[in-house]
Amino acid sequence: MNESSLVGRHVLITGANTGIGRATTEELARRGARLYLACRSKDKTQSVIDTIRRNTPEAQLRFLPLDLGDLDSVRRCASEFLALDAPLHVLVNNAGLAGQRGTTKQGFELAFGTNYLGHFLLTQLLLPRLRASAPARIVHVASDSHFECKALDWDALRRPTRTFMAMKEYEVSKLCNILFGAESARRWRELGVHSYSVDPGTVASDIWRKIPWPVRYLMTRKMISPRDGAFSSLHCATSKDVAEHNGRYYALSGRDRAPSVLAQDATLARILWEKSEEWVGGTR
């Protein structure tokens, strides 16, 4: 991974106060980026900001309230950032949940609505600033678990979580992240805004906090650390080696690889995009 200075670069990262997001934030701060931490909890995020400032006194960090499971909150977060009149060179769509059941505030399946649809709206609302700051990058934190998803059931995306462990729904949400990255690359290729989807590996992070014990222990004991899991995100957010890439999927090593056959379906990606625009009620 290129270790060049990021002074002057502005980065917004969702879910920045824990797990992969926190590890990504700490490294970006160390390298001098100006950071906007979009998270649900102000108290938890402020604790992370204070820790980073102790280790990196010159760090520039700002909290932005964001609940991806509430599209009204997504709109407020985007409006608050845009009101700052700051550039945006990198957007890291990192936040996510797994093993939780239910629906979002607007009635979407919880994992789909939080991991994908909230980020879809946030990215669309921030696109004008990304475009104005070009060359800019969008990093979508996905997962190799998307290979397990064999179809999209459009009706299921509008209903409560069906499976007990909610892992099938998690797989769907991660497939949608990759489809979004590929379709945005096709639509925005002339805007100077590049998209990257990444597999961070299987990381022992707070994303699994709702998985019942002892299942959670058995799942996480052989997983990698959040710091190791942040590698692919950092690589795609900062490396000159991928500056000209667009719409690709990257493994834990930082090398691009082919996603699932379903994730390469351009027609499916287009339909998902069109349905998502309808579901969020507009992206302006």
Rank of each mutant, 00 (worst) to 15 (best):
G201P: 13
H10K: 09
K275G: 10
F112L: 04
A59M: 08
V203L: 08
P128H: 09
L175R: 06
H235R: 14
I207N: 02
G229A: 04
E148V: 03
I178L: 14
G21D: 06
M223F: 14
Q60I: 11
R257T: 15
I224M: 12
R34P: 02
Q100I: 14
W273Y: 12
S205N: 01
Y170N: 07
G113L: 08
H245K: 15
F81T: 02
Q124N: 11
V280K: 09
R187V: 10
A86T: 03
N115C: 02
R22P: 01
L175P: 05
R248S: 05
H10A: 07
Q264R: 15
G32P: 00
R31W: 01
K240T: 11
V141A: 05
P160Y: 06
V11H: 11
S253K: 13
F108A: 03
D206P: 05
Y217G: 15
K150Q: 13
T161C: 14
F231R: 14
T283D: 08
P57A: 04
A151Q: 09
G8L: 02
I211M: 10
E27N: 06
W213C: 04
V215I: 15
F112W: 13
A33N: 07
H235T: 13
S195V: 08
R31H: 03
L157H: 00
D144R: 07
A83V: 08
M165T: 09
T103M: 14
K174S: 05
F63K: 05
D199Q: 14
F180C: 11
R209V: 06
G229I: 11
Y196N: 07
G32L: 00
N177T: 07
C39R: 02
T24D: 02
L268S: 01
G181Y: 12
G118A: 09
I224N: 06
R189P: 00
E109N: 14
C236Q: 08
S239A: 11
F231A: 09
E80M: 11
L68P: 01
A33L: 04
P128A: 06
L84R: 00
R101D: 07
A182P: 01
A182T: 08
A111S: 13
D206H: 12
V139S: 03
L252Q: 11
F231G: 07
D155Q: 05
Y250D: 11
L268K: 12
L28K: 00
E80T: 10
Q46Y: 08
D199K: 09
R284V: 12
D67V: 08
Q124E: 15
S5F: 03
A111F: 08
H235K: 10
G21H: 00
W154G: 02
L37V: 03
V74L: 07
I52L: 11
G192C: 10
L130K: 06
E274H: 11
H146N: 08
Y116L: 01
H119Y: 05
M167Q: 11
M167H: 09
S173V: 10
E27M: 05
A166C: 04
N55V: 12
V139T: 06
L64W: 15
H89K: 00
Q124H: 14
T103D: 06
Q60R: 12
G69D: 03
S232H: 10
